[in-house]
């Protein structure tokens, strides 16, 4: 039975006693090298929409690359609540990386509350981030382009300058919000802190 489901050229072990053990790569198909394969029903149920890839030159630790890819996929809606994440052994087999690295990434995502494990079933996406609908996004974008970006260009800022300014403003904005939140928790919320951000 495992042959019908299987990986053909990829080479993965079958379990002791004949039960299908690993049908690795089935979830992501041609991964860097081409594998010919047919996907059985059993695999299809266990598949995840997510395909991990690694950039060895990025300098970002492997586990963080995995974390970022899950976050990214959730943010863009490739992964939605209830979707399955690739199984540990599948990730390990397709990327040939240390299982502890994958576990570390999944633990990190679990602590962030993004995913959760169901014993014996796998790991699933728990939360979808608040998404903004398309109309709102477009309106926001229009205000940015017609207003601020035009002014910044007119003032003589180049692309890097604009990006740097935006990053720095965003950071201040976030920090301002945080300190406001902290001060209101202390019961010292006042008009004074509200002015700081504007």
């Amino acid at each position: 039975m495992c042959r019908s489901a299987g990986v053909i050229k990829g080479s993965y072990p079958r379990a002791v006693g004949g039960a299908p053990l690993v049908d690795a790569l089935a979830f992501c198909g041609p991964w860097r090298y081409s594998f010919t394969m047919t996907i059985g029903k059993r695999d299809d149920e266990a598949r995840s929409p997510l395909i991990f890839r690694l950039d060895p030159r990025s300098g970002v630790p492997t586990y963080l690359q995995l974390v970022h890819q899950v976050e990214h996929a959730i943010r863009l809606g490739y992964l939605v609540q209830g979707d399955r994440l690739p199984r540990l052994k599948d990730v390990v087999a397709s990327l040939s990386i240390n299982p502890n690295t994958v576990q570390k990434a999944y633990r990190h995502l679990e602590q962030e509350g993004l995913i959760g494990g169901r014993p014996g079933q796998g790991t699933f996406v728990l939360a979808s981030p608040e998404t903004v609908d398309l109309a709102t996004l477009n309106a926001l974008r229009k205000r940015l382009v017609d207003g601020w970006l035009r002014d910044a260009t007119a003032a003589g800022l180049d692309d890097d300058g604009i990006a740097a300014l935006f990053q720095s403003a965003l950071r201040d904005f976030r920090e301002g919000r945080k300190s406001r939140a902290a001060s209101s928790r202390d019961g010292r919320a006042s008009g004074r802190s509200a002015g700081g951000v504007a």
């Binding site: 990829g10 080479s11 993965y12 072990p13 053990l21 690993v22 690795a24 690694l54 060895p56 492997t62 540990l88 052994k89 390990v92 087999a93 397709s94 990327l95 040939s96 990386i97 240390n98 299982p99 502890n100 690295t101 994958v102």
Partner: peptide, 30 residues
């Protein structure tokens, strides 16, 4: 390497492997 890592994930095999190519180790070894 994928096979060795799969066995590590499935059966918890501890692995010691020697190599003089360091870049090869980084993704695999802990």
């Amino acid at each position: 390497m994928a096979l060795v890592m799969t066995m590590a994930a499935e059966e918890g095999v501890s692995v010691v492997f020697s190599s003089h190519v360091v870049s090869e180790l980084e993704r695999v070894a802990d």
